[in-house]
Design a protein around this nucleic acid. Sequence first.
DNA 1: TCCGTGACGCGAT
DNA 2: GATCGCGCCACGG
Length: 330
Amino acid sequence: MFVGIDVSASRGFDLCVLDEKRHVSLLLKARDLDTLEPILRQFPKTTTFAVDAPSVPSHGLLAGKEYRVAEHELRKLGITLYYTPRTETAAPAWMREGFALYRLLDSMGFPIFSGGEAGSGLTIEVYPHLSYVSLTGTRRGSSSKLEWARAALRRPVHGLPAVADQDALDAACAALTAWHFVNGRWVAYGDAGEGLIVAPYPKTELGHAEAAGADQLSLGFETTSAPRAMRSPHASTFADRVASVVSQIPSGRVATYGDVARWAGKPAGARAVGTVLKTRQFELPYHRVVDATGRPPPHPADAAAKLRAEGVRFDGSKVDLSANRWHGPR
DNA sequence: TCCGTGACGCGAT
DNA sequence: GATCGCGCCACGG
């Protein structure tokens, strides 16, 4: 059996089970890990799990970089993805949930795959966006992500409900990647000691690369051979993730530019957060983003007054960070 | 492209 | 504390 699990920031876990013939035999959502655990315990020892979340914090193997080798390799291939920090405490809430899930699976006898012999009874880390690219051999193009994912799974996965949402599709994609892994049709990116990201081997007969030619991609191990850069025009951008994070800061709480940068996946991008907030005109509670010393932002002009009205405590002209700091997206 | 800019963070002074 | 220098990274000319 092949179990894919999608870990989402705010929507809990999505789980999809595929049988040997890649037919969906179970598709469900679980609010939290406590809800998920009894379900996980029912799977036989030969089950293979695939989790859409980083398996371990970065080991800092890249000089001057925080994130992992796997993430670096994929970015060189034009695949944008999250940045995993060096420590678990610096990670956003959804990543911490993911780490806890890997630990739980390990304690149940499904250790993380870290190179060597592929096979059942393991847990692999996957990244559905990468798997979709591998499966189709194309970048997303102009269709929505939902349509792109649905199209990529149509042939290889049987019995997927038409109403399946993005999280469910990603869980199914993860399970399908586990199937590829066990059946010898896979590649892995990253450093074996620091966490490998597994994807279906590109251009298999399951892939059915529809759009041959211009959009054809080469995704292999040869990351030094400078493969053609591929940029998805509608991928989740840093600016979008910043907007998402800032929109979630509750009234009466504040976050620093650095906090927002971390939770948007770029721990060193604090300054860029300022650039984004200045440049892009989102409907956002800008006044709740303060600098690392607690100084309210220059815009809106009445930021401090707004914060006081929300009950935020001040120490002189600066926010008392220890009393009012928000601790990240659920 | 490349390069200057800035609603940042951090360690040094 | 305040300020400075430097690294960081998205934007825009």
